[in-house]
Design a protein around this nucleic acid. Structure first.
Ligand code: MN
Ligand code: MN
Ligand code: ZN
Ligand code: ZN
Lengths: 140, 140
DNA sequence: ACTTGCAATGAAAAAGATTCTCATCATCAT
DNA sequence: ATGATGATGAGAATCTTTTTCATTGCAAGT
């Protein structure tokens, strides 16, 4: 994942794009909002306008470099497209996100779409619950 | 689904609440946004403030009368809780929504959550694609 | 039916997320 | 190096949803 990926997407290789891509690549939190990216870059001394963050993230999404998720909470989160597709599990208390992939579910989805005359293009499976952290369990 | 359901939720039986519940019950389109509800009621001559629509829908959700979905598009959609849980398939062209339920997927989700130490509270599975309508197929 | 407390409503303002506008600036093919 | 074109930043605008607050209406008790 480097500047060539930006170029291959038909986009000019600019400092904002390089910095945003680097952050998505190196940040410990894989799933970040546009606001998150903005603030994290600010913390690193990179003053990139929020409008640019939104623009670039959308361009990266179109280029297939980044995936956008509509978790609960009223704002989108983005993640760098590494390996391949996967689904998510979100802790309703601490916000922790775990990733998983299940071939049984993936297969059934394709079958179900077909049964309904749909051509599946994409899908979103999110499990909401309480993660393993004791503080996130009910009654804590 | 009647006024008693509103009362049982600990809410006063008011005209806005009755009208919103009636609309959710009788409307052909099961999945509607707050704005949709607002406009549809206006068309019927019921002038209920948009803020009230949002408030009441959220209250109905809390009471378990209504479910909120975060489909793509930047706004939430609501549906009356009839039978039980089900998942959704959304046409990316015409917006048509089909409902389905699959026990294999439901079971695997519970297993996967457990494998990751999560207590599953809820989940959201949405298949995006092109519906059976020829006009919604690629290359039309 | 009459009172009355407290919840509910409408209108407008506010808030939060995202997009758009436009003047200025940077990239890159030539 | 130059110039065409795309990219950026700042702020305005838009869209969705929530909040505020003065007014109204339900419903419990008389
Ligand atoms: Mn992920
Ligand atoms: Mn449904
Ligand atoms: Zn947690
Ligand atoms: Zn369609």
């Amino acid at each position: 994942m480097d500047n060539q990926d930006i170029r291959k997407a038909g986009l000019k290789v600019t400092l904002p794009r390089i910095k945003i891509l680097e952050l998505l690549e190196n940040n410990t939190q894989r799933h970040v909002s546009a606001e998150d990216v903005y603030k994290m870059l600010l913390d690193k001394g990179e003053e990139i306008g929020l409008a640019t963050i939104y623009r670039v993230l959308t361009q990266f999404e179109t280029a297939g470099l980044v995936t956008r998720h509509n978790f609960e909470g009223g704002h989108a989160v983005f993640e760098l497209d590494r390996g391949g597709h996967h689904d998510h599990m979100v802790c309703m208390v601490c916000g922790k996100v775990e990733e998983f992939i299940d071939t049984t579910i993936e297969k059934r989805q394709r079958e179900i779409a077909k049964e309904h005359g749909f051509e599946m293009v994409d899908h979103s499976l999110i499990i909401y619950g309480h993660c393993g952290n004791p503080k996130c369990k009910v009654g804590y």
